[in-house]
Simulated scan of single mutants.
Amino acid sequence: MNQDRIQGRWKQLKGKVKEQWGRLTEDDLDVIAGRRDQLLGRIQQRHGVAREDAVREVTDWEKRNPDFRLDPTDKSQ
């Protein structure tokens, strides 16, 4: 999926992400813009979790939302 499509879908799913990770701000969501590595970093920062825990949470979220995939630019995997 190209970045433009990911960003378009991201706008649709901001609410779901906000439900899951309530401490993320609108500015955080704008910066993340569908990029997995950005989401992981912001979850770590705002929720105070380890990288491994953030990866697990995002992976679980992706499994519950199979019609949507984040941009796989995460360099840790």
Rank of each mutant, 00 (worst) to 15 (best):
L39Q: 05
G41T: 13
A33I: 07
P72Q: 10
L40T: 05
I43D: 03
K11C: 07
L39M: 10
Q44A: 07
I43G: 01
Q38L: 14
S76N: 12
F68G: 00
L24F: 01
F68R: 02
A33E: 09
D53P: 01
D71T: 10
T59A: 13
D74Y: 15
A33F: 08
G48I: 03
R69P: 03
L29I: 01
Q77M: 08
M1H: 11
V17S: 05
V17D: 01
L29Q: 02
I43N: 01
V31F: 12
V31Q: 12
D60W: 05
D37K: 13
R23A: 13
A33V: 07
A33H: 08
K75H: 11
V58M: 09
V49M: 05
K63R: 15
L29T: 01
Q20L: 14
Q45W: 10
Q7A: 09
G48W: 03
D4I: 11
I6E: 00
G15K: 10
F68D: 03
G48M: 05
Q12P: 02
R36K: 13
Q12V: 06
V49W: 03
L40W: 05
W21M: 04
Q77G: 09
N65W: 00
R64W: 05
Q77T: 12
D67Q: 06
G34I: 03
E57R: 12
R69K: 09
L40R: 15
E57K: 11
R5S: 07
L29H: 01
Q38C: 13
T25A: 02
L70G: 04
D27M: 10
Q12N: 08
V55G: 00
A54C: 07
D67C: 00
R9C: 06
K18T: 03
D4R: 11
R5C: 04
W61V: 00
E19F: 07
D67R: 01
R5E: 08
G34A: 06
D37S: 13
Q3E: 09
G22D: 06
E57H: 08
E57I: 03
D37A: 13
E62V: 09
G41V: 04
R56K: 14
R5V: 08
Q77D: 09
W61S: 01
R5Y: 07
Q44M: 15
D4Q: 10
R35K: 12
Q44P: 03
D53T: 13
G48V: 04
F68M: 02
A50E: 14
V49Q: 02
Q38T: 11
W10H: 06
R42N: 06
K18V: 01
A50F: 08
R9A: 07
G41D: 13
R64L: 15
D30Q: 15
W61Y: 12
D4S: 10
Q38A: 14
I43K: 00
E19Q: 15
K16G: 15
K63L: 14
K18G: 03
L29K: 02
K11H: 08
K18R: 14
V17A: 10
